[in-house]
Design a protein around this nucleic acid. Structure first.
Lengths: 212, 212
DNA sequence: GTACATTTCAAACAGATGTTTAAATTCGTT
DNA sequence: AACGAATTTAAACATCTGTTTGAAATGTAC
């Protein structure tokens, strides 16, 4: 076997670990290549630039997750009646947990990366995401609108962004929160436990009566 | 008048603007001194280091806001019956809006800085905040617990962090969100409009029935 | 107006960053 | 085994970062 793939993979896995832990811009190529035990220049050789490495790390998960979500959204959209909001939200659970097959700890790592992606680099990654997966995202927004017919579209827009903030922030501080919860409440919380706690919180917030 | 204060103020205001726009670590001292039209070395002369400049920028707002909040929390704690959750949350509105007196656009700027503080620098600012204002924060948590007697403390812990995520993320992407809302829904949204939208969303999420 | 302390300034510092280069090595194919 | 392509390597590159230096300028008090 050629060790081209091997080097690429070593870089990818070291990068995703460090990116998730400390963010994209705070992680240097020298940290990555040092952890991966490869030469510094190999990042530029295999990926071109740091920016393209970041995209490659995210793509490895998005390429699995997004088609899976798209398929679920289509299923719900073909239903005769509007779906319950918690049903729509719960659609994320399984595909996210299946990311553990991409990589051990894949679910947690990906969600942390997602958080970093929104708070770390501004604009660039958001554009990348909307450009590639905007269609799928629109289906989700439509499903939410159908399940909350009483809410105006602009209210839903704001509340979905509020919810994105909850998810992104929670996942970016995932490790810290787990530690605090363990210390203060003797709780052992795994990633799927956090997700299950999120659903009722988000559903209640999104479906809350308008302030008028 | 001595222009010592003048230079310090020019740095402080240029720094807070750039910090809010692009984050703490992404903003260089040369950008700050260039915008403030002062010499590069004056930051270290007046503030000591970049880290201390960051703290000074935040302190200018926290020193006004936190005693104000503490006073409001004491008022609610002295009530005979538990307060409504929306009452507890609404306590933030006025003190936050009064930050406009510290500086034009002060409310919006401070909230963006808060968002940057939690997502940008890890650990350090969180510690600084808890150490200086932990007591005040504890009163708030107590008020929330009193208003939601049915919820276990651990559930409230998680939901308050979920809520912090919403606030921090929303405020960090404040400008972008306002632009999208303006383009997609012909809405003109000011900072107090966002705050008023947040209250019912957060209240519903925090008070949601437990999953189990 | 002279003496002193405070503040400004241009320049340099030491270290880190992403990227490029060109030679050395390894690999697959004939 | 030998050739050519793909990969790895050490070194240097240019640029940026926060910080320090010591002299110049400014302000203040007697």
């Amino acid at each position: 076997m050629s060790n081209k793939q091997s080097t690429q993979l070593k870089i990818l896995e070291a990068a995703e670990q460090l990116f998730a832990e400390t963010g994209f811009s705070a992680t240097s190529l020298r940290q990555i290549t040092s952890l991966a035990e490869v030469n510094l220049a190999s990042v530029n050789y295999h990926f071109g630039s740091k920016k393209e490495l970041i995209q490659a790390v995210l793509q490895r998960y998005l390429a699995v997750l997004m088609p899976r979500l798209d398929q679920e959204f289509n299923r719900l959209l073909s239903a005769q009646q509007p779906n319950q909001l918690t049903t729509v939200l719960s659609v994320f659970v399984e595909p996210l947990l299946e990311l553990g097959q991409v990589q051990p700890q894949g679910t947690s790592t990906f969600l942390q990366l997602l958080g970093r992606g929104y708070t770390d680099v501004q604009g660039h990654l958001r554009w990348f995401f909307n450009h590639h997966y905007g269609r799928t995202l629109d289906k989700f927004v439509l499903l939410v609108q159908q399940s909350c017919p009483a809410l105006p579209a602009s209210e839903i827009f704001w509340r979905l962004h509020f919810s994105l903030g909850t998810i992104v922030f929670t996942m970016a501080s995932n490790v810290a929160l787990k530690d605090i919860a363990a210390a203060d409440f003797n709780e052992t919380v795994e990633i799927d436990g956090v997700i299950q706690r999120l659903i009722p919180y988000l559903a209640a917030g999104i479906a809350a009566p308008s302030a008028a």
